[in-house]
Amino acid sequence: MNIFRLAGDMTHLASVLVLLLKIHTIKSCAGVSLKTQELYALVFATRYLDIVTDFISVYNTVMKLIFLGSSFSIVWYIRHHRVVRRSYDKDQDTFRHYLLMIPCMLLALFVHEKFTFKEVMWTFSLYLEAVAILPQLVLLQRTRNIDNLTGQYVFLLGAYRGLYIFNWIYRYFTEPHFVHWITWIAGVVQTLLYADFFYYYFESWKNNVRLQLPA
């Protein structure tokens, strides 16, 4: 475990906490894309199939349980919570899941390291995670007033991906045979999707104005 990896995981954890804070405390999911949250739940469900077959560390297992539990409970909150569900921007959150899921599944079936169920699912989760933020970014673009917590949530998620790239660079130079093309390319694509958001996030922060993405 290096500092970039730890910082990345903590940023990821922070993003989830910020989102849960918004949903649980303010009882609002305004500006949060249910589509993205459902895709993340699917990402973790398909990636962490090894939680029952391989033991890596207590840290690893606990974090996996946190990400699985939080992603499914966020989806539950938005769909079923009596108060929270009323704040969901259903008419704005129109991105169609299958446009992302089907190409990712096809790609995972053809481009993978090993053709086993677990490995193809793991690869599918990497491809899907890379694009899962898209419905959220589209929703942000349609939302005129992005509240602070939603902006911070997306910023923390983007920071987590950026830190993972530094983690891979570090591991490449410190560990023998650490070459993972699929993980790296999917991770870089994922981080690049945040570039535009980061630009406007820092602009709004610098000028001390409310975050707004141009349509």
Binding site: W122, E175, H180
Partner: peptide
């Protein structure tokens, strides 16, 4: 351990 290296990530 080439295969398991990145599987320890989240």
């Amino acid at each position: 351990c080439y295969q398991t290296n990145s599987k320890d990530e989240l």
